[in-house]
Simulated assay, not measured.
Amino acid sequence: MEHNANQITLRGNLSAPPTFSHENHGKQFYRFFLEVPRLSGVADTLPVIAEASLLESAGADPGGMLTVTGQIRSHNVRTDGRRHLMIFVFASALTCEDGEALNDAVLEGFLCREPIYRRTPLGREICDVMLAVPRAFQRADYLPCILWGRTAQEASRCHTRDKIGITGRLQSRVYTKLTEEGAEERTAYEISALTAQIPMDLL
């Protein structure tokens, strides 16, 4: 399942030069942000990690358009004694090519907590789920997803360990967090679902 359970393709503009992220098994990895505009004109600024050799082959320049193929990954990070989930795209291929913006994600996994269903003040239906998406070596990526409208209703009937599939886009969302030091601006990343495959017995 893990081979096709997590796929994403992005095309957008490289917002700044890549910076060193980490080294693993003798390979160096770099982190950069890709600005991918939505149809509304608002741009999602999305974190990508890629091996140095991929960046060298692509020859990407800041401001230039870059296509990224890979997977959405998660990693638990401890900051100031607290854990938080870091979401990023792990690139398997990079190419410099012009074209329309792309942000296409396909996920399949299992709910690792009960869905949270709610309505906005304007009455729009929303359902938040946390999807555990398997990958190699018996690992999993834990990815926050948000579903809308009728799809939100259907997802709200699911339970922990139910298997669902989602197609959508990875989006960034800036919010304000109140801390002991005052208000702090942070960015959250989540998959906004366009369609979802829900178990038939729950529909």
Rank of each mutant, 00 (worst) to 15 (best):
E2S: 12
P17N: 09
P17M: 13
F20T: 07
E23G: 11
G26W: 08
G26L: 08
F32L: 05
F32C: 03
A43W: 00
I49N: 07
I49T: 15
E51N: 08
L55H: 04
E56T: 14
P62M: 06
M65E: 07
T69N: 09
G70Q: 03
S74Q: 07
D80K: 08
L85N: 13
M86F: 14
M86L: 15
I87S: 00
F88C: 03
V89E: 03
A93M: 15
A93V: 13
L94Q: 04
L102F: 05
N103K: 03
E108G: 13
P115M: 12
P115G: 05
I116Q: 14
R118Q: 05
E125I: 01
E125V: 00
C127M: 07
C127K: 02
D128K: 14
P134Q: 06
R135E: 13
D141I: 05
P144R: 01
I146T: 15
A152V: 02
S156D: 05
H159S: 13
T160S: 09
G165C: 09
T167E: 12
V174A: 03
K177T: 01
E181C: 00
G182K: 07
T187E: 07
T195M: 10
A196E: 02
Q197G: 06
I198R: 02
P199H: 15
M200S: 09
